[in-house]
Computed example of a mutant assay.
Amino acid sequence: MSFSQDLAPILDVVKRIDPSFGSVDPEQIASHAEDAHRYASGTAKDRFLLSAMRLLALSGNGHTCLIPNDAIHVLPLRFVTVGTSVFLTKASTPVAEFAPCKLVAVNGVPVKRIERAAECLLAGTSQRKRVIGPLLFAWPAALVHLGCASSGDKTQYQFETGDGHTAKANVSISDAVPASEFYPSNEHGQVDPVWSPNGFVAIHDYADDGLALTLPSFFDPDERAFPEAIDRAATWVRSRRDGVLVIDVRGNTGGDFLATMPLIDAITESARTNGCAVLVDKFTFSAAIVFVAILRYRLKRKLLIIGEDMGDGLRFFAEGGLIELPASGASIRYSTALHDWENGLADQTTPPEIARQIVAAGKLEVNRTWVTTPFDATPKDVLYRQLINDLA
Rank of each mutant, 00 (worst) to 15 (best):
H165D: 14
D231A: 15
A392Q: 07
E27H: 09
A259F: 05
G62Q: 14
V292R: 02
N186I: 09
P262V: 08
A176N: 09
R301N: 14
D242C: 04
V104L: 07
A44F: 14
S328G: 06
L303N: 09
W370R: 11
V14A: 13
S196H: 09
S185C: 05
R224W: 00
R385W: 08
V106L: 04
Y157K: 04
E223T: 03
Y157G: 06
V280F: 11
G307P: 01
S4Y: 04
I289F: 06
W139N: 03
S185G: 14
R224L: 09
S286K: 08
T84H: 12
T349R: 13
T81C: 14
P379E: 11
K168E: 14
G189Y: 05
E269L: 05
D25Y: 05
W236S: 13
I17T: 15
T336F: 06
G199H: 11
P19M: 12
G311N: 10
Q28Y: 00
Y384S: 09
L314D: 00
T369R: 15
P216M: 04
R333N: 10
C276S: 06
G199Y: 09
D70N: 12
I358E: 13
I332W: 02
S51N: 09
S217N: 08
A392V: 01
S150F: 02
L258W: 06
S23C: 08
A234C: 12
H165M: 10
G83T: 05
F159M: 09
D205I: 13
G243M: 11
K168V: 10
A91I: 08
E115L: 03
V191G: 11
L103H: 05
I306G: 00
A138Y: 04
L75I: 04
R16A: 15
L304D: 01
P100H: 07
G321S: 13
A99K: 05
F200T: 07
V86L: 12
L143S: 10
H32W: 12
I358W: 14
F283N: 10
F317P: 01
F291R: 07
V280D: 01
D242N: 14
E324H: 12
W139G: 00
I305H: 07
G22Q: 12
Q357I: 05
D192I: 00
V194T: 09
T89V: 14
H145N: 12
Y297E: 09
V280G: 03
